[in-house]
Design a protein around this nucleic acid. Structure first.
Lengths: 301, 301
DNA sequence: ATGAGCCCATAAACTGACCTTATGAGCCTC
DNA sequence: GAGGCTCATAAGGTCAGTTTATGGGCTCAT
């Protein structure tokens, strides 16, 4: 039936990665903390389930088969997503009294922060991080009230009372399903055309909506939306199924663009960039773990 | 301990997504094929494990909490990776006698094909697909011998005896850890500099290596590699930890670039693009399921 | 050549997570 | 207030994955 019955569980995938690294079932077993027979049986049952031999066993160790190498690469992506899940969830848990309290806008919390937290944990395993997600105003408020040590916002400017540095850039992209007429255009869209067309947008789109509104203000403003949906993913899904063009953060659609489930439509003349900034109360440069995290998120310096 | 104890299993994540979609535990349970009490207990145990309330229960249904919405988005990425795993693995299983036999180069098989197969399954659930991965020569051979119905290759030209269409473009990027001096350069690298620098490269890098060699042939050829590693991921890992600059497919590093674990270094004057092509025996345009898959991979037409 | 040390496989028994069925309680609509 | 929906709790069954114990194959050094 469903995924669960066809895809091995995370433990099995981790075990497979360990086998790939070590070239031995026994040593892989030790790494993930089980005994060798358990590993043997688990890999075998995974091979049965997939119907493909994954490792070549020999008295001198085990190597991945060609198919095994491919499966391992797919498994790695699943495990990496699970690590990001874990890093985010762990930060979400420690509501109060954490050593490092971070407040971030939704896009950053969703797509970037988990990666930074994985890196932070690699360097400082004992740092407990807590995370609050909200719009720019909420982030600023948390920082100024002393409820957060470091913030991340996306938008056009640093909120008043805060200092900040740019840690990345994001673009809003106009995307459409490959079958949509816009996907085949030669000429870029004009801002006026975009403004006149009903789009699929986020409902509570503070970040996205704000940039879009200000970019199109001079062209008559954004048209009445075709659909207003509650989550980024809902918007993506609507766009993929061809409901209409959507405007989404570049970070949210890298996957879909690579696999061509969505196509980016160039727009002439309008600037849809927005800065991603780390912010803190004016005059109080972050110290301690906040400084470490800041360093990870702007690694160029 | 490890990931498995902190991250809910795939079934629980799917259930959570179903709850988000339906706004009700009971209906979500029905969707994933379990009973309502099972769903209730599973969601509860997930909340206990994460230490965060995920859904607001009420006599009129259940809605995600704010934290729940964030967790659900992370969960979705895990589930999507699992779906890609499944699509790939399923194709790998049906070695022989499948209705649609695909041969693809490694990069395409790894990063793009699973997405296309998910889409193919959505439209034609009963099509059994089999997959062989290999370099361009192996793909061509399989097609000409009648062992494959459709092929995908990356490279500079269509192999002799085949027809093909471009289904996408890929760039090779020079990437370095954020702390590497190249990450802070203002001026683009010159091809000669690149050619003179020892790099981290794939060992059996037919595709990547071929493009790199030909692009740098006029500048003295590629220097002796710093490291030669067996998998794309090993190369990425080495680059991230600062072993040295690497040259990798854009498709392989979108994640790392977005989270700034790696930085792309511009190169002046050298063209590192390569075409991704669907190919078939000359004169035998694909029909049936092969045509469907071809349509999915070049959705622009 | 023979024993030590690595590799993996198999067998039997234990454990626990997850499932189902059965039931109850709260809220809303008619 | 009956019937619809919602979710929670309790009791019992099932099965995957675990451990411990054992055996066989290969290689290397003595």
């Amino acid at each position: 039936m469903s995924l669960t019955h066809r895809v091995p569980d995370l433990g099995a995938l981790e075990l497979l990665l360990a086998v790939a690294r070590h070239g031995s079932l026994g040593r892989a077993a030790r790494e993930v903390g089980i005994t060798q027979p358990a590993a043997s049986s688990r890999i075998r049952s995974m091979e049965r389930r997939l119907g493909v031999a994954l490792v070549d066993r020999s008295p001198r160790g085990s190597r991945l088969t060609e198919a095994g190498a491919l499966v391992t690469d797919w498994a790695r992506r699943v495990v990496e997503a699970a690590e990001a899940f874990d890093a985010g969830a762990q930060a979400l848990r420690d509501r109060r009294d954490s050593r490092l309290r971070v407040a971030a806008s939704m896009t950053i919390a969703e797509y970037l922060l988990p990666g930074w937290l994985i890196a932070l944990r690699a360097g400082r395993p004992d740092t407990a991080v807590s995370l609050r997600a909200g719009n720019s105003a909420a982030v600023a408020e948390a920082l100024l009230a002393g409820d957060a040590d470091l913030g991340y916002v996306e938008g056009l400017a640093v909120p008043p009372g805060l200092d900040g540095v740019v840690v990345g850039r994001d673009r809003l992209l106009v995307v459409a399903a490959p079958r949509h007429p816009w996907a085949r255009r030669r000429a870029p869209l004009t801002p006026a055309e975009l403004a006149a067309t009903p789009l699929v947008l986020r409902e509570y789109g503070s970040g996205t909506r704000q940039v879009l509104d200000s970019a199109l203000a001079g062209h008559g403003g954004v048209a009445e939306p075709l659909l207003e949906l509650a989550s980024t993913t809902a918007v993506k899904a609507a766009a993929v199924t061809g409901a209409g063009p959507a405007v989404l953060s570049e970070l949210a659609v890298t996957e879909e663009l690579a696999s061509r489930r969505l196509v980016a439509v160039p727009v002439a003349g309008a600037e849809f960039r927005r800065e991603l900034r780390a912010v803190w109360p004016a005059g109080h440069r972050p110290t301690g773990p906040a400084r470490d995290l800041l360093g990870l998120s702007r690694p160029g310096d």
